[in-house]
Simulated scan of single mutants.
Amino acid sequence: MSLALAIPLGVAASAVYGTSIVVQHRTAQQNADAGGETSPSSLLRLARNPLWLIAVVSDFAGFLLQAAALSAGSVVVVQPLVVLMLPVALGVSFLTGGHRPRLGDYLGVLAVLGGLGVFLALVGRPGEPHVPHSRTIAMAVGLVLVIGLVACVVVIGRNRIVRGAVYGGVAGAYFGALAVMVDAASDEVGQHGFKSLVTHARGYVPVICLAVLGVAGILLTTMSFQIGALGATLPANLAADPVMGVVLGAVLLREHIPLSAGHLVAYVLCLAAVVAGAVRLADPHAGPIGPDGPAVAPSG
């Protein structure tokens, strides 16, 4: 395990994600139905949009960087770095014609960086992961998928803010679980080689799970972007992602994190700081990522 390698790779992955998210949000809003709603036809229009496709390819590049980071470090350290995509998105949006950052935006950046930095300092070095039995992995991922699906079904017909928050939160939970699958698969490769990914259940089960989680996460993220309400979607996404990664990393992979009462309080405060910063940076009126008003359906 090398944190000196894992952290720079994780930061690089977040930079790629932060750049991609600006493009994805803008193209998703442009291809949404009237009133900013999402539908199968709007998703098909989006799938034919070259900019959106480029952003998806960029996401895959970010995933490769993140996978490399997870192979070098633990998920409870690497996955929280995903929150760095918001400060990156702030800068990318400004450079591509968005509003100039305001004082509140800089304070939001400080809240995200402060919450992340304190959390990483508290966690320290979690130790080497332990790959659980493939049946345990499959059951855990199945539970995450089912709970997320139920949550999405429950909010059908609710207002855009509620749906955006739930879709974003579920997508974040899926991505957090995906990171744990990457960590489990990379650890299996380290012990038994790449062939174990197709010959051993502890190899191919995490790969299958991460593929399902990835597709579901991308679909929900796209739907949440088309709905709009970015001020609810992104904070929910960026809160659920590292939380799910840390929880499953500690429970499934047995990565050690301090769990005293003082540490738990500090973790909650760190999460609150990150969420507060995310709410500010995702505020459509501040303009860091792009306008979040009703989308206009494309003509023709």
Rank of each mutant, 00 (worst) to 15 (best):
S71Y: 08
A229I: 08
P80C: 00
V76R: 06
V144K: 04
A240T: 15
I54E: 05
I147A: 07
R158Y: 14
A201P: 01
L95F: 12
P291C: 01
V154N: 02
E128S: 04
P242W: 11
Y174R: 02
Y267M: 01
G277N: 10
Q79P: 05
I227T: 12
V109F: 02
L51P: 08
T199Q: 09
F63G: 02
A211V: 11
R254M: 03
A111G: 01
L149H: 11
S299L: 08
S134F: 15
I156S: 03
G18T: 09
G277I: 13
G287Q: 08
V144G: 01
L230M: 15
G115C: 05
L234D: 01
P258T: 04
L90Q: 11
F63T: 03
A184P: 10
N49Y: 12
G18S: 06
L53K: 09
T233L: 14
R160H: 12
L269V: 15
G117I: 09
A295F: 09
N31I: 01
G148F: 11
G290Y: 13
Y106E: 00
H99M: 07
A55G: 09
L51I: 03
E128Y: 03
S93K: 02
I54D: 01
P132E: 06
N31R: 15
I161D: 12
H192F: 14
S2I: 01
L264R: 14
G290E: 07
P288Q: 10
G172Q: 08
L46T: 12
M139R: 14
P288V: 02
G262T: 07
S2T: 05
L248K: 04
G108N: 06
D283H: 09
G228P: 04
A266F: 12
A138C: 03
L65C: 06
H99Q: 13
G114H: 11
A236Q: 09
I54Q: 07
A272Q: 06
G97K: 08
S2Y: 07
A232I: 11
A15Y: 00
A6W: 05
L107V: 13
G10D: 04
R202K: 14
A273D: 03
E188V: 05
P50W: 10
F175W: 13
L43R: 15
C209I: 00
D59S: 09
